[in-house]
């Protein structure tokens, strides 16, 4: 395994994934670096490196209560900033609109369970269902259904008028 090649190949995707999970670029950077530090002592075949890194990073995020509480605090701060930024007297409309979009997206993502977020974000990074099953530790045959439910929950959170097809029956 070429460690530097592995870093160059996977760090950007891993950072994006972790940053989306924790909402804090500094914290995401720390998690990514810690994941690669751990990789140093795990000389894996090249085709196993990516999934292993995402598993480690997922567990680092999942298991760290301090990280979770810090994330919530940062999100609260971000929402406050977003509220301030949405004041048309202070900022241009375009910036205000983007801040609102970010706040809405974040709020919708926050309404999902950690597992839903992790699964959706791994899917966004192009992981196969079989790989998601291994990282999240669910049955491979259930990944499609779990992802679809998570997508509908997200849609409902973004747009409260959205009617969940399953719940309507």
């Amino acid at each position: 395994m070429d460690f530097e090649a592995a870093f160059n190949s996977h760090q950007e995707s891993l950072f994006r994934y972790v940053n989306r999970l924790v909402g804090d670029a500094d914290l995401a950077s720390d998690v990514v670096q810690e994941s690669f530090v751990r990789l140093l002592s795990h000389p894996l075949p090249d085709d196993e490196v990516r999934r292993w890194l995402f598993t480690v990073a997922t567990n680092l995020v999942r298991d760290d209560a301090r990280m979770r509480s810090r994330r919530q605090r940062l999100l609260a701060e971000r929402y406050e900033r977003s509220d301030m930024a949405s004041d048309p007297a202070d900022v241009p409309d375009e910036v205000a609109m983007r801040s609102e979009q970010i706040a809405a997206a974040r709020a919708a993502l926050e309404q999902l369970s950690p597992r839903d977020r992790q699964m959706l974000m791994m899917r966004e990074e192009g992981f196969r269902y079989s790989e998601i099953a291994k990282v999240i530790d669910v049955a491979p045959g259930s990944v499609g259904t779990l992802l679809a439910r998570a997508l509908r929950r997200f849609a409902a959170a973004v747009d409260p008028a959205h009617i969940d097809d399953e719940e309507s029956e």
Binding site: A25, R98, L109
Partner: peptide
């Protein structure tokens, strides 16, 4: 939504 919250990797 995810792209809207993305920030460039510092690494």
């Amino acid at each position: 939504a995810l792209e809207s919250v993305d920030t460039p990797s510092p690494l």
